[in-house]
Computed example of a mutant assay.
Amino acid sequence: MKAITHEGSGGHERLKFTDAADRRPGSNEIKVRLKSAGLNHRDLFVMQDRPQPDLSWIPGSDGAGTIEEIGPEVEGFSVGKEVVIHPTLGWKRSADLPKVPEILGGPTDGTFAEFVTIPAENVFPKPTFLSWAEAGVLPLSALTAYRALFSQGKLQAGEHLLIPGIGGGVASYALMMAKAIRASVTVTSRSKEKLRKAIELEADYGMDSGADWAADPNMHKVDLILDSIGGAVFPRFFPLLNPGGRIVSLGAGTEAQIELSLRELFFSQFSLIGTSMGSREEFIEMLHFIETHRIRPVVDSVYPLSDTAKAFDRLTSGEQFGNVSISIAR
């Protein structure tokens, strides 16, 4: 099969479009013929920090396609069925937290290929109203946003959400999901174009990332902050929160270390909550939410499988809004 492989130490400059071996499904596995896949910043982190860099490996955690072959003990599936892939391996119930979530596409071979073989419990029917490009970029980012907002952040209708650094896949899903339950959403960005696109997605207000947010007369106190930036902006959060407000951290695009005032934390009874990926249980809930509210992923651009390295150039430029998609049509 054709695939994108990574070998050696380095980032996406080490990617190669080549022939790779696929495999038949085991007793409880399904082989999927992929139609599309999605890029995530996680792919870049795994490339840079591989424990065995000399081994050839296929990246990619997001994907959608049709069932090609079914393992002998698998029931309830049929060849040709259109499916999406749940990328978290082995985490079934939300309450059973793993030490570190195991994710498709690192260390296991992933979705930047014509075929992928995965556990049957990670295969779900594709939402029929989504295109292949939309379905292929849905799983990881939408699952991360869903858990961050609802399982961890407990966002409710009528509350006010702040999303610093709008533009990436998780942020765009979080915006659309929050608006679907009638929450208010404020976003920030250094890009006027990204702020404009966020307003088109029904964000209530947009601010420049470099502005004094607390001094903005149009900025009202917030109940929840969804942070993927980290130390560079964290000290600016507490003055923005209502008493009892929550900060959900799902990444650290800048410094991982933060300054934290314990007095502010306990006097105003703020909550600082971490989150990463999501369980099979939450993936099912997320798919139901997406279908109920007819949320369509924001696809920034589509590249053929052979141009995956160029697609990562787009991702690392920071100019994208939404998800970057890979087309794997034969």
Rank of each mutant, 00 (worst) to 15 (best):
M1W: 04
K2Q: 15
A3R: 09
R24P: 07
S27F: 09
S27P: 04
S27H: 05
N28H: 15
N28K: 14
R33N: 14
K35A: 07
K35P: 00
N40S: 12
R50F: 11
Q52A: 14
D54A: 13
W57F: 05
I58F: 02
S61M: 11
A64S: 13
E69G: 08
I70S: 14
K81F: 05
T88C: 14
R93V: 08
R93E: 10
L97Y: 12
T108Q: 12
T111M: 13
K126S: 12
K126R: 15
P127V: 05
A135K: 01
L138T: 03
L140G: 07
L140E: 07
L143S: 04
Y146M: 02
A148V: 06
F150I: 03
H160S: 12
L161C: 09
P164I: 06
A171R: 03
A171D: 07
A178Q: 04
A180Y: 12
R182M: 05
R190Y: 02
K192P: 02
E193G: 06
R196K: 15
K197N: 11
I199K: 15
G206R: 04
M207A: 10
D212G: 04
W213E: 00
D216G: 00
N218H: 13
K221Y: 06
V222H: 12
L224K: 03
R236L: 01
P239C: 03
N242G: 00
P243A: 09
P243V: 08
G251C: 08
A256T: 13
A256K: 13
L265P: 10
I273Q: 13
T275I: 02
F283H: 13
E285M: 09
H288R: 10
F289G: 09
R296W: 05
D307W: 06
D307R: 15
A311W: 01
F321W: 11
N323D: 11
N323H: 14
I326H: 10
S327H: 12
R330A: 11
R330T: 08
